[in-house]
Structure formats: structure tokens, C-alpha cells
């Protein structure tokens, strides 16, 4: 935990510019086996901003997101060519331990996935993992408040995390992810399994969370990108080489992407002409 705090402090000291790039993702090629999934995409991610990844199905936006904390390493046939510079270090450097990377860069998944433990233990999971020495209940409360879930669960912290509704489970997963105060949060379509009310709560939460964290979110929903993202990256599928390879078409301020896209393809996509 101290190590995390230190890195964050060091970073804000050395780069006092507010819009510092925390992570610079330079993808040359991502393969699954022989299949080229993503090519030539550069995505710089700025501190305390929300970046949205949009694009049609199969364009590799989830693959790119999951490459940012080396979650894809769990797939044996995955191969990454390029660099992801995080606070000046390439996380794909051979000396880097992916387990440590994931402690700094938290993740919220498409399907809410609480552990079959109590609500309290779910949130405390990461803290215990990091041998947190301070007041556990205080940090759990803080994380649950941070995830806008505290009032709904404060009287039943001993109940199962799986007893909550889908929207509450997703906020529990967010609380679990922010309890260890990671530096970045990756969210892979966090609202796709939620109803509109729960979606709205999670979106409001993201806007609050960006005060403290840097967030990258994959979304299928263009309105959602417009509502929450500061920057939007549009990915598309290139089928010209005979296989379906995703690539970054255009990236910019969300407003610009939706109102004055530079590329024809982006224009057609944000107008809803294909999906």
C-alpha cells in the first residue's frame, strides 16, 4: 500500500502538469495464436480523466483494455508486440511482474463478479492481500461510500456479496477495486449487465471517481461514452487483409469525436450508420 501511495506521490511531484499522461499504450500487434487481433494503435491515457473505448463488435477494444493490466496474459495464446509505458516503465518488460501491475491497475468486469464471501470480506479482499495494517473496517466503509453503496449495505455487511442485486453487485466490485486505492481503473463494459437506473448510478460514480483515479472504460453504448468520457478512442475492424483485425481509427476529445470527427468511418459510426 505504501508503495502505491509513494509512486502516485512521486508522479504528481515530478509531473505537476494536471494533464500528464499516466499510461502511453503503443500497440504494434496483438495476436491470439496466429490471429492478428489488433494492430497499430497508440492510446495515451491522461491522469484523472476518463477515456472511453468505442467501436463495433470484434474491433478489439476489450482486448486493448485487458492488455493495459496484463489480464490477457491469462490466455496462453495471447502475444503482445509493442509497449505500454506506465509511469515511465514498460509493463511488458520482461522484468515486470504482471501480478504487481494488476495491484496498481484495478479492473471492473462486464459481469458483476463478487466472490462468494460476505460483503465486508469482498471489499477487504484486496486489503488483506496487500497485508494492510491499518483500520480494516474504516477502509471498507470508505470504499463502500466511494462506490455509493454504503447506505444500502451498512446494516448487512455480513451477508453474502452474491445476495445483492446486479447493480449493487457491480458497485460492490467497484468498491472492491478502489479499496486498495489503485492508480488506474479499467472498466470493461461495466454497465452492460445492468438496468438503466443502476447504469446511471455507476456513471455518476465514475464521474466522482475520476477526481482520484484515472479511468479507461470500454462501452458499447455511445451515449454512455458521451456522458462520461473526456477522451474517446474509436476502434474499427479492418477486413481488407482477409482476417478481422481491429485498429484505432481516431482518438480525441469526446465532443470532437462525436461532433466533428476527422475520419469518414468515425462519422458513419457515431451517426449510427453501422455497428
Amino acid at each position: 500500500m505504501n508503495a502505491i501511495a509513494e509512486t502516485v506521490m512521486l508522479d504528481s511531484a515530478s509531473t505537476s502538469v494536471t494533464n500528464a499522461v499516466v499510461m502511453d499504450c503503443r500497440i504494434e500487434k496483438i495476436f491470439y495464436g496466429d490471429f492478428l487481433a489488433v494492430r497499430d494503435s497508440r492510446v495515451p491515457i491522461k491522469k484523472n480523466k476518463i477515456i472511453g473505448f468505442i467501436g463495433p463488435s470484434g474491433c478489439g477494444k476489450s482486448t486493448v483494455l485487458r492488455s493495459l493490466n496484463r489480464m490477457n496474459d491469462l490466455i496462453p495464446i495471447f502475444r503482445f508486440e509493442g509497449k505500454v509505458t506506465y509511469h515511465g516503465q514498460d509493463i511488458y518488460d520482461r522484468k515486470v511482474d504482471p501480478v504487481v501491475v494488476r495491484r496498481y491497475i484495478g479492473m471492473v468486469f462486464q459481469q458483476p463478479n463478487p466472490f462468494s464471501m460476505s460483503i465486508f470480506d469482498n471489499v477487504a479482499f484486496g486489503l488483506r492481500l496487500n497485508r494492510f495494517k491499518g483500520d480494516l473496517s474504516e477502509r471498507v466503509e470508505q470504499a463502500l461510500r466511494g462506490a455509493a453503496l454504503w447506505n444500502e449495505v451498512k446494516d448487512k455487511l455480513k451477508n453474502s456479496g452474491l445476495s445483492l442485486s446486479g447493480g449493487q453487485q457491480q458497485r460492490l466490485c467497484i468498491a472492491r477495486a478502489i479499496a486498495t486505492e489503485p492508480d488506474m481503473l479499467l472498466m470493461d463494459e461495466p454497465c452492460s449487465a445492468l438496468d438503466p437506473i443502476a447504469t446511471r448510478k455507476v456513471e455518476e460514480l465514475m464521474l466522482e471517481l475520476k477526481e482520484k483515479y484515472t479511468i479507461a472504460i470500454v462501452t458499447h453504448n455511445m451515449q454512455q461514452a458521451m456522458r462520461v468520457a473526456d477522451t474517446t478512442a474509436f476502434f474499427a475492424v479492418d477486413i481488407s487483409q482477409g482476417s478481422r483485425t481491429g485498429y484505432l481509427v481516431e482518438m480525441g476529445a469526446t465532443r470532437q469525436i462525436f461532433e466533428q470527427p476527422q475520419q469518414q468511418l468515425t462519422r458513419e459510426y457515431v451517426r449510427g450508420e453501422f455497428s
Partner: peptide
């Protein structure tokens, strides 16, 4: 044990041993 639970544990920065010990075996 659902894959999404193991993913969650890996995503928290668990080593394989920790995923097995803290999530797979209890579940």
C-alpha cells in the same frame, strides 16, 4: 468455480497460489 470469480481475483493482483487458496478452494 466460475471463471469470472477467478478473473476477479487475478484482476485484484492475486498470484496463482492466492487465487487457488483464497477463492477456488473456499468456493
Amino acid at each position: 468455480v466460475p471463471k469470472k470469480m477467478k478473473d476477479a481475483a487475478f484482476g485484484m493482483g492475486c498470484t496463482r497460489t492466492q487465487v487457488i487458496w483464497n477463492v477456488v478452494l473456499p468456493t
